[in-house]
C-alpha cells in the first residue's frame, strides 16, 4: 500500500517529530539520577532513534541521530557532541542491520541490546582515539549496563511499534 513518490510528506513529518522527540528525551534523561556505571545513561533518546529506524529505515535513523548529536553539541560541548555522534551512528547502523536481517530471528529486546552495546562501543572507540588505552577499563561495565538499558529500550519499543503500525492503517 506504499505509494512510491519522490517526496513522502508523511515520512518527512513523522521523522521530524521523532527527531524532536530525541531532543526532549535527551533533556529528560539529563534530569534522571546517575546510573551505577560512570558515564552510562539509560538511552531514552535511543528509543526514538530505534522507532525511526524501524519505521523509515536508514533515512529516519540518520536524521534522528544527527539531530540528537547536534543537540548534544550545542548543550554539552564539542566533546559530548562528537561522542554522541560516534555512538549513535554506529548504534543506528547496527540496529538497522539487525532489523533487516530477519523478522523472526531477532526480537525487539535483541535489537535494543545490540543498539545499546554498539552505542557504548562507538563511544568507547571515540574516546580511545582521544585518550588512549586507559578508557578500555570501562568497557566491560559499559557492556553490562548496555544489556539492561538496551533491553529496556527493546521492551518499550515492542509495545510502542505495533501500536504505531496499527494506527498507520487508519491514518
Amino acid at each position: 500500500m506504499k505509494k512510491k513518490s519522490g517526496f513522502n510528506v508523511k515520512m518527512f513529518s513523522q521523522t521530524a517529530m521523532l527527531s524532536a522527540l530525541t531532543i526532549v528525551l535527551s533533556f529528560l534523561e539529563g534530569m534522571l539520577p546517575e546510573l551505577p556505571v560512570p558515564g552510562a545513561k539509560l538511552g531514552l533518546a535511543n528509543l526514538a532513534v530505534m522507532t525511526a529506524t524501524d519505521l523509515f529505515g536508514l533515512t529516519g535513523g540518520l536524521s534522528t541521530t544527527l539531530v540528537k548529536s547536534f543537540f548534544a553539541l550545542v548543550t554539552r560541548g564539542p566533546v559530548a557532541g562528537f561522542m554522541s555522534l560516534c555512538g549513535s551512528l554506529l548504534s543506528m547502523f547496527v540496529m538497522w542491520l539487525f532489523m533487516r536481517y530477519d523478522r523472526k530471528k531477532f526480537g525487539y529486546v535483541g535489537i535494543g541490546v545490540m543498539g545499546a552495546v554498539s552505542h557504548n562501543m562507538g563511544q568507547l572507540c571515540a574516546s580511545f582515539a582521544m585518550m588512549g588505552s586507559a578508557v578500555l577499563f570501562y568497557s566491560p561495565f559499559l557492556i553490562l549496563i548496555a544489556v539492561f538499558t538496551g533491553a529496556f529500550t527493546g521492551i518499550v519499543n515492542s509495545i510502542l511499534l505495533p501500536i504505531i503500525r496499527k494506527s498507520e492503517k487508519y491514518a
Binding site: F106, G110, S158
Partner: peptide, 14 residues
C-alpha cells in the same frame, strides 16, 4: 510478520 518481543537468539546474544 510483526517482530516478537524476545526470541531465543536474543537470549544467546545477551
Amino acid at each position: 510478520k510483526e517482530r516478537k518481543k524476545v526470541t531465543v537468539l536474543d537470549f544467546v546474544l545477551i
